[in-house]
Design a protein around this nucleic acid. Sequence first.
DNA 1: AGTTAGCACTCCTGTCCCGCGAGTGCTAAA
DNA 2: TTTAGCACTCGCGGGACAGGAGTGCTAACT
Lengths: 353, 353
Amino acid sequence: MQKPLPELDSRAREVLREIIIQHIASGEAISSRTLSRCGRFDLSPASLRNVMADLEEFGYLAQPHTSAGRVPTDRGYRFFIDNLMRSRTLTQRERETIDEEVGHANEIEDVLAHASRLLNRFSDQVGVVFMPTLLQFAIRSMDFVLIGESRIMCVIVGVNGVVVNKIVETRQQFTRDELEKIGRYITIEFNGLTLDQIRRRLIRMTEQERAMHDDMLQKTISLGIEAVSDVAPFEHDLYVEGAVSILNKPEYADAHALRKTFLALQEKEKLVDILESCLIEDGLQILIGSETDFTQVHNFSIVARRYGSQAAPLGTVGIIGPMRMEYARMAPLVDYLSRALSRKIEEEEESEA
Amino acid sequence: MQKPLPELDSRAREVLREIIIQHIASGEAISSRTLSRCGRFDLSPASLRNVMADLEEFGYLAQPHTSAGRVPTDRGYRFFIDNLMRSRTLTQRERETIDEEVGHANEIEDVLAHASRLLNRFSDQVGVVFMPTLLQFAIRSMDFVLIGESRIMCVIVGVNGVVVNKIVETRQQFTRDELEKIGRYITIEFNGLTLDQIRRRLIRMTEQERAMHDDMLQKTISLGIEAVSDVAPFEHDLYVEGAVSILNKPEYADAHALRKTFLALQEKEKLVDILESCLIEDGLQILIGSETDFTQVHNFSIVARRYGSQAAPLGTVGIIGPMRMEYARMAPLVDYLSRALSRKIEEEEESEA
DNA sequence: AGTTAGCACTCCTGTCCCGCGAGTGCTAAA
DNA sequence: TTTAGCACTCGCGGGACAGGAGTGCTAACT
């Protein structure tokens, strides 16, 4: 089926390009006639048919049935994105809106929620924003607030300004003063370590006997361990916005396809996996169809990019939509948004420091 | 069409009852024949047809088209629920699971999230749990934690144990000690008032000039106002779980109906309105079809009940599903869950006090 | 008077068929 | 190398049709 080195001459490339663009616009299969009539080629349908037959042989196109036009395959899209696509830059207006919305919010959770909504709004696809658990990030401070006889709220601030809080129930009694001291101690002592490292270090401390004699230290350790132990608040943050948008796409007119799609989006773990994998590498990532690793659904694409500072990426933003999406618009959108986010976060950090 | 006082004899009631039960089970329109064959009546189809014609005249039944069986109307369901339904009590096992799950979690947000998931799981409908903004509830304490040069986290605990936190950006600088003092002051001074009352009182204080001379008091006031001013964290909490469940319902086989339904569920304000209206009255509330006030969709029902202590209801739990749902099972489910939640919350309060 | 059998009528549903249109592949000519 | 022509395939929509399900009505039966 697939030749090893499909060298495409420039005409074939142009034809593939045009087919994909038209298919993205219309959602229909593209025939040799419509292609001939579009004006970009001075060729008869018959000639175009020959080219199309070649492209099909290379695996870039497929026909849904004999008497239908051609539709791009995963491979076709891949080639298009790698070699043929000309990204449309964002309009001034779009950029301004993004900057404004991102700049407006100030808590990071708020910023991320806004970001996912922005993605959804501008793309009319599902917008996702992902921020992995704080466990892997260094902390800047830790404070404890008494909110009941035996309940203490622990407020943890990461070096990147992320704030997490968690409520712990304790058997021991703490006064406000004690909590104040404990917070101060931990903040100073463990500043810059990750929650995971802190936990390990605290556990090691329990083994050292000298800790046993210092009542205050012992309280600190036990409370500290409670606070950083694995639990709900330290889950990944995942914002999925606008799943309804896909209801409008013509390719999901029938209920069965819809069902599968929704179930796939429900499968958060998969999504987290995918978005996490986008963290390791810089630059825009585009996953097409079967490349996405969704188990149930193979006609979805993801356009994503990590955000955060170069040295310490914080998470991933992206959009999810049917394979047939306007990559030329999605790519710069995701790209710009991730940069806007990164900039915002860096600003925050500077203003803090 | 509708007679003013539809006195139904016991046979008509039984027929209506059976029709609704069968329709709930099968989703199909019920014909006189199937009804006759079911064994509960020693009547021929023809006789049943007479009864059914009456029931239709009263507006309890309707036929989708001439040669179809009958389907209950909103009014039919309403009558069924008010007069004919025999609630099935929960199994021992179900009750245990609910108690366990509710008892397990300890932060209130966690409890509520669990509750909505439970509702979804046991009903296979959409589970909703609603807790209105803290603004209307009295507070127990307020604390401030420094989490950056100019950022302060404010931790507010309601009398019912609800914890809310909000980050405020300030122009002024605060030391930890100052924050400590401010928190203590506000907690003692405004204990038992609602956020709204506190805000008003603080604003009144700014007008009294004597406050202007006390630097510390002034700082307290300005920070306090910032902290309780209207913003995101004081939004209603609304947990909607399992929207996917409705994808399985046969009545939403076609994509258009699905679309409308999802959009309706998206309309959070409406939902909040409805659930809020369930707060004023105690006891189980069942809203059928058009009674729900959803603008777009009229074939939905809501079974809901408020939870919290008798004197101070805290929120609403409920399920949303197609009109054709097993009310006999849903009613006790929602009822029991709301009681379990209330019990849990009261326990918490006692153990705190 | 209530019940029921019988019958005519309506309307939905699935199926088969048919023709149309759109597209293709191939071949042969320009 | 391009293109016109032609045969072939396939999906789609519409019409016809039979079957089935259900009803309403009437008249007879208990």
